[in-house]
Each structure stands twice: as structure tokens, then as C-alpha cells.
Amino acid sequence: MRALVDKPASASRWICKANSVLLALFLLVPAAHAQEVDGENGTLEVQQWLGKLARAVTELEYRGLVTFEHAGMLETLQVVHAVRDGEQVERVRYLSGNPRELISHGSGKNCARSSGPMARAALWSRAGQQEVQRAYQFILRGRERIADRDTVVIEARPRDRHRLGLIVNLDQETGLPLKSMLVGAQGRVLERYQFVQLDLSPVQDSDLQPQSADARRIDNNNPCSNSQSRWQLSWLPEGFKAVSIKPLNDGDMLVFSDGLSVFTVFVQRLGPELDFKGRAIRGATVAYMDRMEVDGVSYTVTVVGEIPDTTAQRVAASVAAPG
């Protein structure tokens, strides 16, 4: 079998072109039905849905079966979300592949963006929403049935090339996202998370217990810290702001968000075995690694997030220690 690298690509490029025309046709059809959210009514409707979404993901008790798909991989998982003493308790368990399970406690508190309450409930406030709308254009794309429930399809289309798009189906009754897709350049779907079954009855305590011996528990009682970091970024894509700065054993971790997308910058003193310059991709998540030298000390910069790899690369290159 031929090696993959030395193929003459001209013919396939031609096919690609033909395909993009076809693809454009497919995309145009739903676009004809899409409602542009320019009118006051449309904007209001989207705002109402986003508010509903924000409340649903924090307050709603649910459990269900989910498919999680990226780069041709399909995994199935079980998710449980409950509220105990005002705090969220969440359990994720993979039903396919290696047994993996995570239980998260106490993510009731949300990280604040310096400009206002931006958190998991980023979309609660009108101000927060307006900021998000500066980075994305929201489009109501009609209705679709997911997991035997009626949903409203909303597309968040990025206004520049520094972030990914999001298409999310909100449960008509509760506002819970039942399907969400991250969309990259040329409309390529990078990741899809979709319910196959949803149960909205109150969650029993037994449902929150780990089902495997080596389930990982994380405690999020203090998820966002705002310690100082010596590192600064000379370039940030518009709308992104620091939400959390955390010291690590071997460096710092800085988290940035535009209200929908999140990326994290790690600056660490790591050994020479981690001397790697380039990107690593898993589904919609990209990690761009770079090396820099400050005062004779070598640091590893890693930018991780659900962002285009060009953005990650540019952010990594912009890390500096002023002074």
C-alpha cells in the first residue's frame, strides 16, 4: 500500500472543490429557512433561549444517555446532573471503551469574568449576553427532534476566524442543550454531543454514587482563583478575557473565555523531554506547545482549548513576561 504522504493531490483537490459546491448546496437549503436575528423580536427570542439554557445547565436535575463523537470516534456515556445543598453534583461515566468515570462536586460557584458575571451561567445577564453577541451572531435555525423531545436549534456563528462556531439544540420545555456541535472552518463538525435518552425526574442519591472503583472525584469548591501571574499575553482574540489564574506546582495556568469558548494557557518549567513545538489535536480540542526562554530559563507554553489551531498558535507566541 502506498504511503500516505507522497500522493499527487491534484485530482483529489478537484474532487474537494466539487464537494464544497455540493456541501454549499446542502448548507444553503437550511439557511433559506433560517431566521436572521437582526430584528428586535429575533434578538429577544434568542436572549430568552440563552437565559433558559443558562438556568437549565445549572439548576435542572436530569440524567441521560449521550453519544459523544469526534474525528470519526463515537463513544457513549451516561450523565447525571443534580443539585444538592445549592451545589451541582455531576457524574459522567463512559459506557464504551476503557471504563472512565468522573464525579464533580460543588460547582455551584462560578468564575467571574473581570467585566461581570461570566460563568457557566454566562448567559444569565443581559450585559453578558450582549458581550457574547459581539463575538458571535446568533441565528435561530428552526426545530429538530432529539431524544424524543422537541428542540430549538440555535447557531452561534463566530464573527471572526479566531473561534469556533457552535450549533446547539435546546430542549423546548426546559432549555437544556440536548445536542451541541462545535463547527470549525468550512463548516466542518469537530465534535458532537447528543442525548439519546433524557430523564427529567428528580435524581436519586444512589444515582450520584460512583459505579466503578477507580472513579475520579473532583472538588470544585474553589474553581476560580485570581492569583497574580507574571505572564502576560500581548495578543488575545477580541472578546476573550481572563476568568481564572491559578498557580501550579511547576508554573501558572491562565483561563480565558469569550462567554462561549474557553482556552487555557499553561506556562510551566518542564524538563527537556517535553521539548516539542507543534500542535496536538483531540476532537475539537487543540493543544499548541511552544518553548520560550526568559532570563536563561526555559519554559513550556501550552495553549489548550476548543479554538482553531491558528488561534492557539498565535496566543502561544504572544506569551511574555514584561519587565
Binding site: 456515556l77 460557584k109 473532583i218 481564572s244 483561563v255 487555557t264
Partner: peptide, 30 residues
């Protein structure tokens, strides 16, 4: 290293974005 930073990032993202439990799915994945 890559797995660790991806997990740490996803766990943080769970408190920031409005994506429900998707970041947890990502965090557990790797």
C-alpha cells in the same frame, strides 16, 4: 503532559462556558 493539560483545561471550562456537561465528557475522555 498533553493529557494532563487537556483534563485541567476541560475541568476549568466546565465552570466557564455554557455547555452543560460537555467539558466533563472531554475531561474524562482522555
Amino acid at each position: 503532559h498533553l493529557n494532563r493539560v487537556m483534563i485541567q483545561h476541560s475541568e476549568q471550562a466546565a465552570h466557564v462556558g455554557s455547555q452543560g456537561m460537555v467539558p466533563f465528557a472531554r475531561a474524562t475522555y482522555g
